[in-house]
Every structure is written in structure tokens, then in C-alpha cells.
């Protein structure tokens, strides 16, 4: 565990807490893509099946359980408790366009052709593109609430920090996982446009809005 990895995890945790807090305080999930949240639940479920097969640390287990539980709780809030505020008309990205190709790729390009390994690979690939429905929703409505922008910034920072973590691990631990690194870079690149808008607008006190 190095400092980049820890900051990355904390950033990920912060993102989830911001999202939950936003929904709980405003009693609304307006502007949040339910599709992206379903994909994240699928990501955590398929990746953390090793909870049943191997124990790494209390930290590792706790975080995994929190990520899984919070993702299903988010879905419950969006599709049940605060259903009336869910903006389904603007959340029109088709999940199968991501899940099907990613599933195929996980079968073809993996470290080892074993069920758990293929599911892990699937989750890594899926996570890299799971934010697309959310970004699509922001671009469709042309704006995002400031709190939603903070959520997205924390979520994007998490994967950027993981890249620094991989660079560190490559040089100091001799560790390199090509699948995780490539997918992580793709994931981070998807946030670049958003990072630019966040820094030039949201940090200057303006609401994130896209040019018409």
C-alpha cells in the first residue's frame, strides 16, 4: 500500500459518500444516471467474489463490503425510495452496448481462462466505461449540479491516483498488471473533458454547464 493507492481509495470512498449525501439531503437523485449506478453494482459484484475465496486484510474486506453495499443501496434509493425524482428520460444510454462487448473482451483477453479470473477481468473492463451513461446524461441535459460535479471529480481522481500507484508499484515493487493499467488509463481519459470543465468552471464558483 503506497500513498497514491491510499489516496485513490479515499477518493473513491469520498465520491460514494458525496453521492449518498446528495441524495439523502436533497431527497432526490436528479441528474444521476441509474444506468451507471447499476453498472457499478455489477462491477463490484463480479470483482469482489474473491471475498469468498481469499482474505487479504481487514481493510481490503471492509472496503469491498462497503463498495458492494453502497452500490446496491444507491440503486435502491434511485429505483425505489426516490424513484419520483429519477430523470429516466435523460438516462437513455443503452447498458447492453457496454456489457456485451466488455463481456466478449473479458473472455478473449484475460490473464487466465478461469471463471473468477474472467469475472475479475470483466469487472475491470466494465468499470473503465461504466461512467459513460452518466457523462452522456450530463451532455444531454447540458449541465450538472455542483454536488454532482464534485462526485464525478472525486470518482475520476480515484482512477488517476491509481495510475500513479501503478507507476510507483512498477518501479518499487516490480508489479505490473497490463489489463488493470490499460483499462485504468482508458477510464481516466474518459474523465479528461470533465476535469477541464470542473477546473475552469466549478472551481471558480460556476455551475457546470456545457455550451449549447
Amino acid at each position: 500500500m503506497n500513498v497514491f493507492r491510499l489516496l485513490g481509495d479515499m477518493s473513491h470512498l469520498l465520491a460514494i459518500l458525496i453521492l449518498l449525501l446528495k441524495m439523502w439531503k436533497t431527497r432526490s437523485c436528479a441528474g444521476i444516471s441509474g444506468k451507471t449506478q447499476i453498472l457499478f453494482a455489477l462491477v463490484f459484484t463480479t470483482r469482489y467474489l474473491d471475498l469468498f475465496s481469499s482474505f487479504i486484510s481487514i481493510y481490503n474486506t471492509t472496503m469491498k463490503l462497503f463498495f458492494i453495499a453502497s452500490s446496491y443501496f444507491t440503486i435502491f434509493l434511485m429505483y425505489s425510495k426516490f424513484k419520483a425524482t429519477y430523470d429516466s428520460n435523460h438516462d437513455s444510454f443503452r447498458m447492453e452496448f457496454l456489457v456485451v462487448p466488455v463481456g466478449g473482451l473479458a473472455f478473449l483477453v484475460n490473464h487466465e481462462f478461469l471463471p473468477l479470473e474472467i469475472l475479475w477481468t470483466f469487472s475491470i473492463y466494465l468499470e473503465s466505461v461504466a461512467i459513460l451513461p452518466q457523462l452522456f446524461m450530463v451532455s444531454k441535459t447540458g449541465e450538472a449540479e455542483t454536488i454532482t460535479s464534485h462526485y464525478l471529480f472525486a470518482l475520476g481522481s480515484y482512477r488517476l491516483l491509481y495510475i500513479f500507484n501503478w507507476v510507483y508499484r512498477y518501479y518499487f515493487d516490480g508489479f505490473f498488471d497490463l489489463i488493470a493499467v490499460v483499462a485504468g488509463c482508458v477510464q481516466t481519459i474518459l474523465y479528461c473533458d470533465f476535469f477541464y470543465l470542473y477546473i475552469t468552471k466549478v472551481l471558480k464558483g460556476k455551475k457546470l454547464s456545457l455550451p449549447a
Binding site: 500500500m1 474473491d50 481469499s54 487479504i56 481490503n60 490473464h111 487466465e112 479470473e117 491509481y162
Partner: peptide, 10 residues
């Protein structure tokens, strides 16, 4: 080579 049994990253 990648160690498959030790996925400590989240």
C-alpha cells in the same frame, strides 16, 4: 508474471 491469487487492489 501476474500473481492471480493476490488481488489486493480494490
Amino acid at each position: 508474471d501476474v500473481e492471480l491469487d493476490d488481488k489486493d487492489e480494490l
